[in-house]
Structures are given as structure tokens and as C-alpha cells.
Amino acid sequence: MIWLRLFIEFFKTGLFAIGGGLATIPFLRVMSETTGWFDARNLSTMVAVGESTPGPIGVNMATYVGFTAGHGKSGMLSALFGGFLATFALVLPSVIIILIVAKVLATFKENKFVKRSFYSIRPAITGMIASVALMMTKSGVFTKGGNLLHSIDIRAAILFAALLILTQKVKLHPIFYILIAGTVGAIFSM
């Protein structure tokens, strides 16, 4: 039952993706491994769209994954429903938690055990996102399997190095780097 699974997967993500921003990405990467709804390349497209559009990236990603999972099932209507369901499931845990503990949240925030948990969870999330960064670099810069040196895509590697430098030199909205890279990809038929 794909709808139940979609709901459960995103409910779990909403409950444990702590730290905001890209915190949902490690969850989505494992989801792609275990559900087969999308692959690493899809995930990369989703991040690009999520970063280039308004709205919190976690919500954007949930809508996109739900849409893709629903679309694989049976076309546009179930795709729209999938997007809605995944987004609903993602935000449900926080809505429930806030409704239950809103009154005590101020003290909750100051609780030393809560503080300590967050202190050690944040580096774990960072480490997991780093593993996604590694995977994305592999899927973007290396095209074929086998020997690493032979499978490296020279054009992609140059673009990678150039963007790495550019993002350090000038701070632009992510959409500009995405546009630049897309244009380069189109011009050089990457």
C-alpha cells in the first residue's frame, strides 16, 4: 500500500529530521535506497528545484518526492495526491508536538537533557548530509562505474572545481549557481 508507506516514511522524517534546512536529505537518500520511488539523480533534481523555489526546502522536497512516488503509481491525479500526502505527513509530527507541549515549550527548550540531545544530534545530521554530498559528487562528476580515474567526467570535474571556487568568492542565491551549471551542461552536452 503505497499511500500508507508514503505517509509513514514522511511522518518518520518529520519526527527525526532535526536541525532544519537540509536535515531531511539523509532521510530522503535512505528512502530512495529502500523504496525505489526515485534514485540519486532524481534526488539531485529535487534538491535543485527545492533550492530554487520559495518555501522551506524540507517541505519542497516532501511535495516533490510524494509527487514522484504517486506518479509512478498511476499518473497525474495520484501524483498530486502523493505530493499532498507526503507534505501532510512531514508536518504532522511537529503540529502534534507543538499542540501538546506549546505551553511548556519555553521550559522544554531550557531543559538540559533536551539541550544535550540536540548538541549531539546536530553533528550526526551534519555527518549524514556529508555522506549525501559525497554521493552527489560521485553521481555528478563520475559517470561510469569501474576505475575511478577512468570514469571521471572531465567537463563535470572542471565545472565542479569552478563552482566550488565561485561559491566561496561570491555569495549568490543558490538558484544562480544552478542556472549557471544548467547552462554549462546544455552548452557542453554533459
Binding site: 537540509l22 539531485s44 552527489m136 555528478g140 565545472l159 563552482l163 547552462t183 546544455a186
Partner: peptide
Amino acid sequence: HILAGIRVAVAVLIIN
């Protein structure tokens, strides 16, 4: 081709 280029940008964005 466009998406292949964008994949590289996404890798860089996530590294940052």
C-alpha cells in the same frame, strides 16, 4: 544535459 550540469551544482551546494 541541463540536469547533468545541475547535479554538479547541487553537489557543490550540499558540500557548502
